[in-house]
Design a protein around this nucleic acid. Structure first.
Lengths: 198, 198
DNA sequence: TTGCATGTGGAACAATGTTCCGTATATTGG
DNA sequence: CCAATATACGGAACATTGTTCCACATGCAA
């Protein structure tokens, strides 16, 4: 039995073929666009077509429709979280925080369509809220800490509170003017700046 | 033009045929059972079969699937609201209130599956929350007033508050023991009784 | 270049909402 | 009670969409 060929849990047995990665990526990008434009209920066929790929290819990479939704959600969360580090490098802390919160607002707004899926009770989406928190909290924490350290923000702000507060501000004015949420969040940040030099 | 034959909005031009009413009723009953047992996503065919009618008959009475869901919801609300008057006739006010709240708890529990539909964002369900409130509030108000008048309940309880409070108590222990909600509501009612003889 | 594991495309299947229409029946005027 | 007819019925047929399957194509290693 020198070479077990079944049920052997190895790491990554093989790197995926190059074209496979490329197609998977284009499917993910297409799905992101289609979900944004047509809602989460858009048919898988539309996504395949948009990605210039056959149906079978989509299902090879995302065996279930819900896997696609999960992947799009996670990649959006990742992009939003990663933006924090990028902004922190290119702007002073307080500015980075403001810009990132705008970015976060956009994320919440475009992803609000996915809420329908999240609240559907389908167990496939069980892990998404956790992913959301565990990915976004550190990103925001870093921004807050930097701004506090630079004495441009009051200390003692709970990142989780801020995340849900902003999310609620967005979903409050349901179909309203996109600028509204932005302004409200601006107010919130100004409030945080108020007691800066502790 | 002594007899306009189109676009003439009359009252009830004809009473529906007797068998039609009967079948519509059996469809509604079947749908209620099927939704309870298999969830709101149960196929229309299953309901038709259960009701012992053809698919066409279901769609004749409920042109869209959502119409069926709405009808089931409303008839459940009606039944719950009507139960208030019945209980009031057969029990002393405070008892009637307790019994009705138990009934209401059952309603909330069995209808929690419909919440998925209600929160789906489908405009077909827009009016349901309003229907819920406008039908149940008067029912509860009557029970509360009677108990207050009989000096077996403190006054000043807002019916809307009570409705949402109980609903929240139910949905809190999501998949929990059916008795739990009942006990919590019992506590609530005891609390209301406490300051009775104002 | 060759062999094959891997990946691809799309036909085919299954489930389900919805429409259509030939048939059956309740209702009504005689 | 009978015939005429508006009404209602049943279910086949259609449309859409998730999912599976497999003959064929292709990247990759020897």
């Amino acid at each position: 039995m020198k070479n077990r060929s079944i049920a052997a849990p190895e790491g990554p047995p093989r790197p995926k073929r190059a074209d496979a990665r490329r197609k998977m990526d284009s499917v993910l990008k297409a799905a992101t666009k289609v979900f944004r434009e047509s809602g989460v209920d858009a048919p898988v066929r539309e996504i395949a077509e948009r990605a210039g790929v056959g149906l079978g290819t989509v299902y090879r990479h995302f065996p279930q429709r819900s896997d696609l939704i999960v992947a799009v959600f996670q990649s959006s969360v990742d992009a939003c979280a990663d933006a924090a580090a990028a902004l922190a490098k290119e702007h002073p802390p307080a500015t980075a925080l403001s810009l990132w919160l705008e970015r976060y607002v956009d994320f919440i707004r475009t992803k609000s369509g996915l809420c329908k899926a999240l609240y559907s009770g389908d167990p496939a989406y069980k892990a998404l809220p956790d992913y959301f928190n565990q990915r976004l909290r550190p990103a925001l924490t870093a921004l807050l800490d930097a701004a506090v350290e630079a004495r441009t923000l009051r200390s003692g702000t709970d990142p989780d509170d801020l995340l849900v507060a902003v999310a609620n501000l967005c979903s409050a004015g349901h179909g309203r003017d996109p600028e509204h949420a932005r302004r409200m969040v601006g107010l919130l940040v100004d409030g945080l700046r108020f007691g800066a030099g502790s």
